[in-house]
Amino acid sequence: MLEVKNLSKDFGGLQIIRDLSLKVEAGERRVILGPNGAGKTTLFHLLAGTLAPSQGEIRFDGAAIGALNAVRRARLGMARSYQKNNLFESLTIRENLMLAASAALGKSGKLFRDPRHDAAVKARIDEIAEQIALTETLDAQVSTAPYGIRRQLEVGIALATKPKLLLMDEPTSGVGPSMIDHFHRLLNQLPRSITLLIIEHDMDLAFDVADRISVLNFGEKLFEGTPTETKGNAMVRSIYLGEREGGEHNA
């Protein structure tokens, strides 16, 4: 499904990603772990095409996509949700989902036809709204909505494109325990037709959702294995879990 070979990225001599290789199977749930500055978000930028790698190869669905820009990659079925909310702030929640749904359903460039009255777009909006539990607040303005709702919409926009591969950058970043539970359920309910690549700091959620876990540190892949193997690995414990037990919490 997704295959990364010897990927490197440096910014002015500073290596953010070093010789990283990764293979994710179709339908897999893969969690990326790693301390701050490990290069996780940069990896997502490279995968989504918003940054160009210094070296290496990316294959998606069997095709090399290294030369494609972010727009072309999105059209191949790659979607992304962001660590910092990246929404259409001046619009309503419904309009946000409509933009995503019409993009995915090929209604975005249509002249003289209003996607608001398009049955397929409407159905998609309702479906996603239910999934992210925002059916009640669809017509609220995004800029004035509470943080938790904006966080759900962030994932909802990505889901509304019905991607093959969904890159989620810390979906639970900054939300409370009840919202984490909600995301937990949401992730478990997503169909296996969507491959998930998740950067996550919440350990319970990560270990429960993941099929496999890749651990990054200083841009390198330190370890890869099942959740159980990861928990048992001494090196991972020292660089990552140890730090977490020290009480630091990522906001």
């Binding site: 727009v71 999105a74 979607a79 259409f88 309009e95 019409s102 996607p115």
Partner: peptide, 30 residues
């Protein structure tokens, strides 16, 4: 035009051009 898919996309670009690209919209064309 503004109430069409094209016009809605234009408003989307106004609101957040980067996210429109991430949704697979060729914003330069619009």
């Amino acid at each position: 035009l503004l109430r069409s898919g094209f016009g809605r996309s234009l408003s989307g670009i106004h609101a957040n051009e980067g996210r429109m690209q991430a949704l697979g919209i060729n914003t330069a064309t619009i």
